[in-house]
C-alpha cells in the first residue's frame, strides 16, 4: 500500500506502462457518460490520496474487509431508526408522562427523590460523609471517566488481556446500578427502607 514515489503526472497520462512500480490509475469517466455495469468488487476507483501506514489515519484495511456504506450501513441504520421511532410512539400512546400537582414550595411531599440517574448518589449520601459523596465523588467520577483513555495505556483491547481494567470498570458500573435500584425501589417516605412489594415510590 505504501507508495514510495509519487508518479510524475505527465508520464502517468501518456505512458503508464513506463512506470512498473506505480499502480495503474484509471481516470474516472465524465459525469455525462453512463458508468460501467456495477459488479461489486470489480470496479476500480479513482485514486484520491496516498496515505502512509504510519500516518494518523490508520489504514489497516484491505478491500475485501470493507463493504459499501450504501446499502450495508445505511440499511441497518434506517431500520433501527424506524424500530426506535415505532417503539417510542407506541409507548407514548399507552404510557402517559407523569404529572403531579402544581409545584408547592411550602409542601414537601413525603417522597422527594432526584431524577433516577442521580438516585445512586442520593442513596450513597445517606451512608457516607456528605462532602465526599455529594461533591468530591461526582467530580472525581467525571474527571476520572474523561481521563480513562489517557490513564489506561495498555495496548490490548480484548477483555482477556485487560482484566483489571474491565473488572474495575464493571464494579463501578454494577455498583452504580445497585445503588440506583436501591434508591429507586427500596426507599419510601422519609427515605426509610421499603420492600418493592410494600409500595413503589418512584416516578420517572
Amino acid at each position: 500500500m505504501t507508495i514510495e514515489k509519487r508518479p510524475n503526472a505527465t508520464a502517468d497520462k501518456t505512458a503508464p506502462s513506463q512506470a512498473p512500480n506505480v499502480p495503474v490509475i484509471e481516470r474516472s469517466p465524465g459525469p455525462k457518460l453512463p458508468g460501467p455495469p456495477g459488479v461489486p468488487g470489480t470496479e476500480r476507483f479513482r485514486l484520491l490520496a496516498y496515505v502512509k501506514q504510519e500516518s494518523m489515519v490508520r489504514v489497516d484495511k484491505r478491500p475485501d474487509e470493507t463493504v459499501l456504506t450504501w446499502p450495508h450501513l445505511l440499511r441497518p441504520e434506517f431500520l433501527m431508526a424506524c424500530l426506535i421511532a415505532v417503539l417510542l410512539i407506541v409507548a407514548s400512546v399507552f404510557i402517559n408522562a407523569p404529572l403531579e400537582d402544581m409545584a408547592h414550595p411550602y409542601v414537601t411531599p413525603h417522597v422527594a427523590k432526584a431524577p433516577w440517574y442521580f438516585l445512586g448518589l442520593q442513596e450513597m449520601l445517606s451512608y457516607f460523609n456528605a462532602t465526599v459523596i455529594g461533591a468530591f465523588f461526582p467530580f472525581v467520577y467525571f474527571i476520572g471517566l474523561a481521563l480513562i483513555a489517557y490513564v489506561d495505556r495498555s495496548p490490548y483491547k480484548a477483555v482477556r488481556d485487560r482484566k483489571t481494567a474491565w473488572v474495575f470498570f464493571l464494579c463501578i458500573m454494577v455498583g452504580g446500578v445497585i445503588v440506583t435500584l436501591l434508591g429507586a425501589f427500596f426507599r419510601g417516605p422519609g427515605w426509610n427502607w421499603v420492600w418493592p412489594w410494600q409500595g413503589i415510590y418512584f416516578t420517572l
Binding site: P98, L99, E100, D101, M102, A103, H104, P105, V107, T108, P109, A112, K113, A114, P115, F118, L121, Q122, L125, A130, T131, I133, G134, A135, P138, T203
Partner: peptide, 18 residues
C-alpha cells in the same frame, strides 16, 4: 409540578456539599 420541583431541589442541593 411537585415531582419536578422537589427533584430539582434535592438534586441541586447535592452541589452545596462542595
Amino acid at each position: 409540578d411537585q415531582i419536578a420541583f422537589w427533584a430539582i431541589t434535592v438534586g441541586t442541593n447535592m452541589a452545596t456539599y462542595a
